[in-house]
Design a protein around this nucleic acid. Structure first.
Length: 323
DNA sequence: TGCCCATGGTAAT
DNA sequence: TTACCCTGGGCAG
């Protein structure tokens, strides 16, 4: 269920621990045997994310395209470097109530990028890390579609919607079909592309934001939160939005995506006190303005948050703030 | 233990 | 619009 920020974090993870290495590829589950055979023995030369797609480049013009869909996840194990920016000011990471999050002696290995530690790291819509005690490489857990085994690190892919081999041109075709991603397409050109597209559509903005050919990486949480932050009624057709409102949406998405990549969380509430911010990082229920808050009072005006289906997904919004 | 739900997307209807 | 893919967590029983 990861939105764009998670995919960028996963690509970074590959960049840190796999780029420059030859891997042995296999499909323990048996559903990607031929693909794994093609990749096996090749060196990973690049990892990049565009929206919710991740592309791993191998030598000899081999590319792996992975889309995690709603269930997918990557499990990393071995001597891997993890990104510790979710560390909060009191030096602790994550929340001890949440199963599998980082605790105790392991904290410092995630607090900064330093010497590799033996770790197991699960990257999906949430991230969990723990000290690995098994011998390396560990037995695959669950239905592993693809295992990429390097000398000291291993990555297991489970439950993806898409897992396929392409060449560079095939990758470009996918990228061309996607709307701009603020972390890939920086600068005014990307913003213009987004604005032009939105301005040309009669479709409600609440639907457009979920359309990956309009803008990349926004999922159901970011959609609801972006609209609330912009005080926009989700039903307004794209072409009826003011130019400045559209550009502000793009800028806000850029901000939130960067923050999400930094923290590993979909953090959409700003202006919080340090205490509240820590609470929000630790507790999903305190993290959003409207998402998943049907019937609860709006955090700004007290009006009950409503829910309706839009683009086949649940959309949450405040009828007063977003009138 | 077994259901329901989920931060996606596609194909069939 | 609906069904389905496919996995795991939460929660009712």
């Amino acid at each position: 269920m990861p939105e764009g920020h998670s995919i960028h974090r996963i690509a970074k993870q590959f960049d840190r621990n796999f780029v420059g290495q030859k891997v042995t590829a296999s499909s323990p589950q048996g559903r990607f045997v031929s693909g794994a055979k093609q990749l096996s023995g090749h060196e990973i030369v690049e990892a990049k994310a565009v929206g919710k797609n991740m592309f791993l480049g191998f030598d000899h013009d081999l590319w792996l395209r992975v889309h995690l869909g709603i269930y997918g996840a990557w499990d990393f194990a071995g001597e891997i470097l993890a990104d510790g920016t979710i560390e909060s000011s009191n030096g602790r990471i994550g929340q001890t109530q949440q199963r599998g999050t980082v605790v105790g002696a392991h904290e410092d290995s995630l607090g900064s990028i330093g010497a590799p530690r033996l770790t197991r790291l699960r990257m999906s819509e949430q991230e969990t890390a723990e000290v690995e005690t098994e011998p390396f490489p560990p037995e695959p857990i669950g239905q592993v579609r693809l295992r990429l085994l390097a000398e000291r690190a291993v990555a297991d892919l489970r439950g993806p919607t898409i897992c396929e081999i392409r060449d560079a041109q095939g990758v470009q075709e996918v990228v061309d079909s996607l709307g701009p991603d603020p972390l890939v397409d920086e600068g005014p050109e990307a913003e213009n592309r987004f604005a032009l597209k939105v301005k040309s559509k009669q479709t409600p903005i609440g639907v457009l934001l979920m359309d990956q050919s309009v803008v990349s990486g926004i999922g159901n949480i970011y959609r609801a939160e972006l609209l609330f932050r912009a005080k926009l009624n989700p039903h307004i057709p794209g072409k009826q939005l003011s130019e400045s409102a559209i550009r502000e949406l793009w800028l806000d998405w850029s901000r939130l995506l960067r923050l999400g990549v930094e923290t590993g969380q979909i953090m959409t509430m700003d202006g919080l006190s340090k205490t509240d911010y820590r609470k929000a990082l630790a507790n999903r229920a305190d993290r959003h303005w409207v998402y998943h808050r049907t019937g609860l009072p709006c955090r700004v005006c007290g009006t009950n948050i409503v829910m309706e289906m839009a683009a086949g997904r649940k959309l949450y919004w405040c009828p007063k703030c977003q009138a």
